[in-house]
């Protein structure tokens, strides 16, 4: 399977925006860093037509080493969750229109 990396995205910015290759790569980094900083301070990021990144607080729980069965405490932590928008979900299924109600109650 083909993997898209920073280099591909920077190349697309270079082609679309007409900045230099170096500046395109630098700006991609700036965008990701801005997003990371917002998430770090606990804010969520809502990109219409794409999805929402939000930070969720997880409480302490008892986990288990699957190999040895030994109980290990999992400390409280913050995790990032991405919820794709209906538009993105439709796109990855090759559909133009977003589905309503997740396929239930469709006319």
């Amino acid at each position: 399977m083909q993997t898209i990396t920073r280099a591909h995205l920077a190349e697309t910015i270079y082609a679309e925006v007409g900045l230099s290759r170096n500046e395109s790569a630098a700006l991609l980094e700036v965008v990701l860093e801005r997003m990371a900083r917002a998430l770090e301070s606990g804010n969520s990021i809502k990109i219409s037509g794409f999805g929402t990144f939000s930070v969720r607080q997880k409480g302490r729980r008892i986990g288990r080493n699957p190999k040895t069965g030994v109980e290990v405490p999992i400390l409280p932590r913050r995790v990032l969750v991405f919820r794709p928008s209906q538009v993105l979900k439709a796109k990855v299924n090759g559909l133009a229109e977003p589905l309503e109600d997740e396929g239930l109650d469709r006319p």
């Binding site: 399977m1 083909q2 993997t3 898209i4 990396t5 591909h8 995205l9 697309t12 910015i13 679309e16 925006v17 991609l28 965008v31 990109i47 037509g49 794409f50 993105l88 796109k91 990855v92 090759g94």
Partner: peptide, 17 residues
């Protein structure tokens, strides 16, 4: 461009790392 490219790659079944 960034979000459109990521979406387009996913629509092609590709991975964006």
């Amino acid at each position: 461009t960034i979000f459109n490219e990521i979406a387009a790659a996913l629509a092609r079944g590709e991975r964006v790392e």
